[in-house]
Write a protein that binds this DNA or RNA. Structure first.
Lengths: 345, 345
DNA sequence: CTGAAAGCGCTAACAG
DNA sequence: CTGTTAGCGCTTTCAG
């Protein structure tokens, strides 16, 4: 009772072990009669195949591993700021894995570390996953991507275009920034500040370009003075907002590259006696905090859970069918409009 | 190169496989000389034992499984509210596992479901983990606890006292509520409202009792009219706050059983033109949102990551030493004071 | 269409 | 102290 193996099922059903295996894996060449008998025995005994044994015997591990940035993740946990990325990834990928009899494991590896490669190889050796999900900034790491390719481990790169190297699952950050900026332009804003994200992330560049696109398209001259550097932290947001808002000809709207920095701008504005949405604020990520600030933040929602679900699906597909045709998958963002944006007056 | 096994290491070091196994597991009875030779080969080849094979050969799986409430977790993800519990658990347990060569897997199972047992048995069969971490409300599920005991799977119950059945890792919710209420009393508040949590969670009762304790000790009569039911959701918080604040003799302070409901109270107060902290607010959980509201919420921080770390540690200890002496572990909470509390005037 | 035999990579049990 | 042998529970050959 305490340890039902395939042999017990085979005996109970009066068939060979291999037949049970065939039934469990939905393989062809089993008569309906036998299939039924086996299933009955499986139900009766409550048999569930051991993952470890499956890994040992066969070629699949039924395991996916997601690689996340160690420093960021741990900092967010420690500071009590929460980790929306992790949450949404779990949401999308875990549930998808579950639906296919797979499991997903999280691993945190240091992005800049000189022995990142060794660490990842150790993970590969220990777990032998059927696929790897790379999140930013790992998804941009060419050495890593090359190593995985060489070892023939299927992988998907979240947040970047794969361009034939692994699967790419991403959103159009540039278009999103364009749309966000356009919203502000449509509301009548002309002096629109921009708080940039960390250059470590490809998306930061994309967002800044989209901002520029929209301005140019609207015939508004780009003004370098309206672009402030940031690194996604609250502190950098404070500095950027102060720089932007202390100017005589200060912007009437700001596009921040993430919520954290937008929240910082909100605080700075409040301190300077500038009301929001008189100063309109738009940000990226749509993390839980956007609903709690007063006013709520208009923000670009990234389809993280959808990307993660797609990632898991692609990897599971590969390990089932063996097809290895890297492809790119663009998913849609959505601009969530809340109280932080209003017409210029 | 692509698949280094224990045999390769044994050959390279000129020893028997078992010797390599001994070295890898830090077993005694190996001369320093051999140990060095083996380690050199391990480094050179980049050998890392396969988890699956270890599970098959030995008695350990190097795997811990955390069981979380499915509905709550998914709802929080879906609504974009975030999942602080999950984050903090990952933080504590995952890092602890990592430090010991273990991995932790998350599983979501439906708390009220009639086939919860079957689901958990399936998880046990497939994964054969070395231990289970039960989070609320699963940690209070006696049938589950009984089943795990019967199957001799070590487990820890988070958030409740184990009382000899599995390990218990918890904080003193009653004392925390007492301390929170006392803070309000010390600030001069006498009419203190209470918004209760969902009765599904044992902690809800504890918190209410602590609230009562403090009042009684201070010689303030308990007033049932000041106690409003809630279920941890924002909506229930709104209803409770409205009930409490629309009274003529409304409370000058409110203790809410979680942040979400306190945030709801904040919104209701704002709508009714009641300033916070003129109305003082204290809550439980210290989730990321407490830092973002204006003013920030004074809140009781639960030692979730510490509890999770302790849980993992206990389980890993059992699987290493085989000792099965259930014990209880009380961890300290901390009252984080922010802008939502002020002296009564 | 079904079954028997041979491992997968490791550790437990037992010899030396 | 070190090595040999026999599995663990599956899937993959390869025969019937």
């Amino acid at each position: 009772m305490s340890k039902v193996t395939i042999r017990h099922v085979a005996e109970a059903a009066g068939v060979a072990v291999k037949t049970v295996s065939r039934v469990m894996n939905g393989e062809p060449n089993v008569t309906q009669d036998l299939r039924d008998r086996v299933m009955k025995a499986v139900e009766a005994l409550g048999y569930v195949p051991s993952m470890a044994a499956r890994r040992m015997g066969g070629s699949r591990s039924y395991l996916l591993v997601a690689l996340n940035d160690r420093e960021n993740t741990i900092n967010n946990w420690r500071s009590g700021r929460g980790n929306d990325w992790i949450d949404q990834m779990l949401h999308g990928a875990m549930l998808t894995c579950e639906a296919h009899g797979y499991r997903m494991l999280f691993e945190l590896v240091e992005a800049g570390s000189p022995d990142l490669d060794r660490k990842v190889v150790a993970i590969l050796s220990a777990l032998q996953p059927d696929g790897i999900i790379l999140t930013p900034p790992h998804s941009q790491n060419l050495a890593l991507v090359e190593m995985l390719t060489r070892r023939k481990v299927p992988f998907v790169r979240m947040g970047v275009q794969g361009e034939g190297v692994g699967f790419g699952v991403f959103m159009d950050d540039r278009a999103a920034a364009r749309e966000a900026t356009r919203l502000l332009l449509d509301l009548g804003h002309r002096r629109i500040g921009f708080i940039a994200g960390s250059p470590r992330f490809e998306a930061s560049r994309q967002r800044q370009e989209g901002y520029g696109d929209a301005l140019t398209q609207a015939g508004v001259a780009l003004d370098d003075e309206l672009i402030a550097p940031g690194d996604f932290t609250f502190e950098s947001g404070v500095a950027a907002a102060e720089a932007l808002l202390s100017r005589a000809d200060r912007p009437t709207a700001i596009l921040a590259s993430n919520d954290e920095m937008a929240l910082a701008a909100l605080h700075v504005a409040s301190r300077l006696g500038i009301a929001v949405p008189d100063l309109s604020l738009v940000s990226f990520d749509d993390t839980p905090g956007t609903r709690l600030s007063v006013p709520g933040l208009t923000s670009v929602r990234q389809p993280i859970s959808e990307m993660a679900a797609k990632a898991a699906e692609l990897l599971i597909g590969v390990s089932k069918t063996g097809e290895t045709d890297p492809s790119d998958h663009l998913l849609a963002f959505r601009l969530e409009i809340r109280g932080s944006t209003a017409p210029r007056h």
